[in-house]
Design a protein around this nucleic acid. Structure first.
Length: 277
DNA sequence: GCAAGCCTGACC
DNA sequence: GGTCAGGCTTGC
């Protein structure tokens, strides 16, 4: 879509637009897409400005089932198509479809976009080891929840959080602050490796995810634990288990991903909190 | 009953 | 501030 202009917008479902739909239409119509930007799971299309109009930013958050595709205007509408944006002379259009309507489109200024991106933690592919270690420090919550907290590290969802924890051999319920420096390094390497491989294969599609050309991703066949409950661990053959962590299903190998136990010398353990007898 | 996410608000 | 449950929504 880079270099193409959004001529006219049809909003079929106003609730997928954040803020007043008419404002969105006025701000986005008749503008050229001059750049694209991403942080974590948020996408921003840069819309051209000039001496009278400041640049604007079309923020896209796909949620779980959102799809943004370019299609010929004459192509049949998929079910749950909510927004149509005519491109250039109008032969093609940019469409937003979303069966569960968890995703949102919004138009914002540079300042608003900076605030939104600023509220996200460092992108998972950019974050440094030092930043990552800092974000674990002192946290008692489960590592799985932290990895999915976009304000701390942005870009991981349920699939890649499970896959990264498997690769790093860390139990999803491990308190984040108990992860050692060497395990944190291993986890961050796992996160980046998993994400890069998934991106190389155009992502993971169960039912809904498709890219802008309408193609599903191919990473599903490479998943080690996600949605493999009861199947053998690819590393040791143990049955993959599914538990709830922070309200999200979490898949892991109970043998490869043992819970950390803090080593306490016997003499110390006996003192203070020893048994009563 | 389960699901690729995010926002809100309650509780500590 | 950190943590987490609940709700939004529709389809399999």
């Amino acid at each position: 879509v880079l270099g193409r202009s959004i001529l006219k917008i049809g909003i079929l479902t106003p609730s997928v637009i954040a803020g007043p739909p008419e404002t969105f239409r006025k701000q986005v119509e008749a503008r050229c897409i001059v750049g694209v930007e991403r942080k974590g799971k948020a996408l921003a299309l840069h819309l051209h400005g000039n001496s009278t109009i400041p640049p604007a930013y079309l923020l896209v958050r796909l949620g779980m089932t959102g799809q943004i595709v370019v299609a010929p205007r004459a192509a049949p509408l998929l079910p749950h198509t909510h927004v149509r944006m005519a491109l250039d002379e109008g032969a093609d259009e940019l469409r937003y479809c979303d069966s569960r309507r968890f995703g949102r489109l919004r138009c914002c200024s540079r300042k608003e976009l900076s605030n939104i991106f600023g509220s996200l933690g460092a992108d998972a592919l950019q974050i440094t080891e030092e930043q990552f270690r800092q974000s674990l420090y002192g946290r008692r919550g489960a590592i799985k929840g932290l990895l999915m907290n976009q304000a701390i590290i942005s870009g991981l969802g349920n699939i890649y959080a499970d896959e990264a924890l498997f690769k790093a051999q860390i139990h999803p319920e491990t308190p984040a602050g108990e992860i050692t420096n060497s395990a944190a390094r291993k986890l961050l390497n796992a996160i980046k490796t998993v994400l890069r491989r998934a991106v190389d294969l155009q992502g993971t599609s169960f039912r809904d995810y498709i890219d802008i050309e309408g193609r599903p991703g191919n990473f599903r066949a490479r998943l080690c634990v996600y949605q493999r409950t009861g199947k053998p661990c690819l590393r040791c053959g143990t049955s993959i288990r599914r538990i709830l962590v922070c309200g999200r299903s979490s898949h892991f190998c109970p043998r490869c991903q043992r819970r950390l136990r803090v080593f306490v010398p016997r003499g110390v353990a006996a003192r203070g909190r020893g048994r009563s007898h």
